[in-house]
């Protein structure tokens, strides 16, 4: 199972890099989204995939008798997904603003803050 996840994560990363190199801001963002999902999968796999039960205490705080899964990677993942969601939403809003002020999303043509010194 880890192998499948590793392959999937690699595939997502490859697709992400391809999208991110394309010079269009929106495509870049989708690439970033794929990349963060690839990373989330990697963390998930790094936390080991087991068939163990969730680490919840029984009534009265009794320890369950069976093997328990490590909940920490999932907690990290949840945090990372939430943060990623917030950052992505901001980046999306920024993209809309950029589209409205420039009329295009070609990163190569965004030279407003760094004009060619020669053109002055």
């Amino acid at each position: 199972m880890e192998t499948v996840l590793a392959l999937l994560s690699g595939l997502l990363t490859a697709a992400a890099v391809w999208l991110m190199l394309s010079g269009n801001l929106l495509r870049f963002l989708f690439g970033l989204l794929l990349l963060s999902n690839a990373v989330n999968l990697a963390i998930f796999a790094a936390g080991r995939l087991t068939g163990a039960a969730p680490p919840l205490l029984g009534p009265g705080g009794a320890l369950p008798g069976h093997e328990m899964a490590n909940a920490l990677p999932q907690a990290l993942l949840l945090t990372a997904i939430v943060i990623g969601f917030g950052l992505f939403a901001f980046a999306l809003a920024l993209t809309i603003r950029a589209w409205r002020s420039f009329g295009h999303l070609e990163v190569d043509r965004m030279r407003l803050a760094e004009p060619d010194e020669g053109e002055k």
Binding site: G86, A89, F90, L92, A93, I96, W99, R100
Partner: peptide, 17 residues
């Protein structure tokens, strides 16, 4: 508060565009 701020802002921007 946080999620609605984001959703409303995106919707507003979307409508203007």
């Amino acid at each position: 508060g946080g999620v609605l701020t984001l959703i409303f802002a995106l919707e507003d921007l979307g409508e203007e565009v």
